[in-house]
């Protein structure tokens, strides 16, 4: 479960200070599917970074379960990311020189999983997203939808508590978008994940249990 208490985040841009988030209070229960929408520059990126333990708030507290992400040192934050948080990016962010299987394996590297088990789990993860037959293809040999499936397999292979998806369907056509969303929704349901999806696409957002709107650093609930 995520708990955000009076979270603010400001950035220095040359001579001025920009408030990306202002006094945000938010609770995301474990196992919830949340969609975050809002205009560009509204603070969605900042919120995802704080939820993903990639950054710390300027003030306030961000907690994932018992871990206070706003107070942990960098090394511990890395540990939290390695064990508890999976990421899916708009641009897929696969390593171009590695095969699909090896890309999935990268998520198990920080956990010190032995090579044989790593390979077995990565293969299983690829099969769970329907790409068992593309394991030895490099990203350049895969379609956009297939690359995003590899990215989802990479995010889920370590069996995280949370999956954070940044515009996961932003680079895909409608049919592929629906396939990816079906896949994410299925995994969320099957694994009891906490799934936070940042999206501009209302069709995607409508599939969420809960919809948040971020504008000028302020979060509002959307019915």
């Amino acid at each position: 479960m995520y708990t955000l208490e009076n979270v603010s985040k400001t950035y220095r841009q040359k001579e001025r200070t920009v408030a990306a988030l202002t006094d945000v209070n938010l609770t995301i229960p474990r196992g919830q599917l949340v969609a975050v929408q809002g205009p560009t520059g509204g603070g969605k990126s900042t919120l995802l970074q704080l939820l993903g333990a990639l950054d710390r708030p300027t003030s306030g507290r961000v907690a994932l379960g018992e871990s206070d992400l706003s107070a942990l040192p960098d090394a511990r934050l890395g540990d939290v990311r390695a064990r508890e948080i999976g990421f899916v990016f708009q641009g897929f962010n696969l390593i171009p020189t590695l095969t699909a299987l090896e890309n999935v394996e990268t998520a198990l590297d920080p956990l010190g999983v032995p090579a044989e088990e790593r390979r077995r789990r990565a293969t299983a993860a690829l099969e769970s997203v329907g790409l068992g037959d593309r394991a030895h293809h490099v990203p350049g040999e895969l379609s956009g939808g297939q690359q995003q499936r590899v990215a989802i397999a990479r995010a889920l292979v370590k069996e995280p508590e949370v999956l954070l998806a940044d515009e996961p369907t932003g680079n895909l056509d409608e049919q592929t978008r629906d396939e990816i969303m079906d896949l994410l929704e299925g995994l969320w349901r099957d694994r009891g994940l906490t799934l936070v999806i940042v999206t501009h696409d209302s069709a995607v957002a409508r599939r969420a249990e809960r919809r948040l709107h971020l504008k000028q650093g302020t979060v509002t609930e959307r019915r």
């Binding site: 990311r81 390695a82 990421f87 962010n93 920080p110 990479r154």
Partner: peptide
């Protein structure tokens, strides 16, 4: 940059 950022995001340490 994107590649290393991604690896850090999924938990790779600076040392690694």
């Amino acid at each position: 940059t994107r590649e290393f950022g991604t690896l850090k995001a999924i938990g790779w340490s600076n040392r690694r």
